[in-house]
Structure formats: C-alpha cells, structure tokens
C-alpha cells in the first residue's frame, strides 16, 4: 500500500469559475461556492470523479442508488446538457439556477416543457402524458382503471392542446401554465433563495483553509 503524498487538486475536472456562473445565474459568487460543496458531496458519493453519475443522483434523491424513476431520469437528462451521461459542475449550477425563486418564470416553464417532452420531439404528445401518469401511479402504488387514466389524460389534453392537433407545443404549454400556475410550483426551490444562510454547513472555507 502506498501513501499519497501529493495534494489533491482543489477543483476537479469540469469545475467552472464561480464568477462566470454567478453572472449567468441568479446565484452570487459565494452561493455558487457553497453549492460547489454540495456538488462535491453528491459527485463523490459513489465515484469520486467530480461528476454526478445517475446512480449518485438517485442515491441523493431516494437514498437508494438503484431506485429508478422516470421523472428522476428526465431531471437528470435535462441537467445533462452535454448528453454525456454525467452532470458536471456548470450544468448543475445552471440547471439549479432555474429552480431559484428569482429565476424568470419563462425559464421554469421551458424547463418543465423539456422535462415532459420525453422523446424530445419538441412536443408533449398524448402517449407521453399517459406514460407519465402511469409512471406516477406506479411510483405511488396507486391503481386506477385504464379508462380512468384515459379520462384524466383526455381531459388534460383537451384543455392544453388548444390547436387540437394531438400534441402540446411550447406555446400551448406556456398558455396552459399561465392558466394553471401551480403546474410549475415544483420548479422553484425556496432553499435556493439564500443558500449560504440556509445551508451554512456548505459554506466551507475552501479558499483559505488549504
């Protein structure tokens, strides 16, 4: 067994300058630095490589690295802008920025649309909506008769698909959310409002304690 004399690098690959990330997001520099501590914790829970793997994301969300869920998969994939199977620091901060209470509502609505556009066709299709309802019921151990599920999906679709072409485009989605603002309630995390106060334990003196 050898011992490591060399000092670990302060930042892992994929690290981005907090000043630049703060300029692009509702976070200030110290909040980005605080979130880096959370990111380090999440990204080292299974594989310590400075990137959040899907299993690490599942572990953080469900306390179980093997618990898969359609919606967690979609959140992960929507964070993973580079589509390389991992969430890097910059991706993490930019995506979380959308969940900030001060982020523009428009960006929350668009993010939700991307989440629900399962096959990334630019539309939410009826089959996708039904698949999500079934996934939610399965996740919640709820059983509904097939025709009840069809009724829920049909009713929602007839409300949202105002053009009546069998799919919900982003304009219809925006209009639908404006009529039903509670649909994007889960796109705001109040915790992010002042993360350095809410999570003082994340604020470590990483820049000065070395």
């Amino acid at each position: 067994m050898g011992c490591f004399l060399s000092k670990r690098p302060k930042h892992t690959a994929g690290y981005e300058d907090p000043t630049l990330l703060a300029a692009e997001t509702p976070f200030n520099v110290s909040e980005v630095e605080a979130l880096y501590e959370l990111f380090k914790k999440l990204s080292s829970s299974i594989v310590d490589d400075g990137r959040i793997h899907k299993e690490e994301f599942q572990l953080a969300l469900f306390r179980n690295k093997n618990k898969r869920n359609l919606f967690a998969d979609r959140v992960f994939d929507t964070f993973d802008v580079k589509r390389n199977g991992v969430i890097e620091f910059g991706e993490f901060i930019r995506a979380l920025g959308i969940f900030h209470p001060n982020a523009p509502v428009e960006s929350k609505i668009e993010f939700a649309f991307r989440l629900y556009d399962l096959r990334q066709t630019g539309f939410i299709e009826r089959e996708e909506l039904k698949e999500m309802v079934l996934a939610l019921l399965h996740e919640s151990d709820l059983v509904l008769l097939e025709d009840v599920v069809e009724t829920i999906v049909d009713k929602t679709f007839s409300d949202a698909d105002t053009k009546g072409d069998g799919k919900i485009d982003v304009e219809e989605w925006k209009e639908f959310v404006s009529r039903n603002p509670s649909l994007i309630k889960n796109m705001t995390l109040p915790y992010l409002k002042d993360i350095t106060l809410a999570f003082p334990s994340f604020v470590v003196t990483s820049e000065v304690d070395d």
Binding site: L38, L42, A60, L61, F62, N69, L70, F71, A72, D73, R74, V75, L96, F99, L115, Y116, L129, M132, V133, A135, L136, E139, S140, L142, L144, V148, T151, I152, V153, K155, T156, F157, D159, A160, F176, N180, S182, L183, K185, N186, L189, Y191, A198, F199, S201
Partner: peptide, 26 residues
Amino acid sequence: VAPVAMNAFELISTSQGLNLGTLFEK
C-alpha cells in the same frame, strides 16, 4: 379530489423524482 377531476400535469408534478429539495437534505 377525485383523480378523474385532476389535471394530469398536476398529478405528475407530485412525483418524488421531481422533488429536488431532497438533494439539500443531509
């Protein structure tokens, strides 16, 4: 609320997989 009267997206938004708040819990 009877599920049949619910908006499907409202139902979906209750998914645990969409609740990122858990990331911030110790």
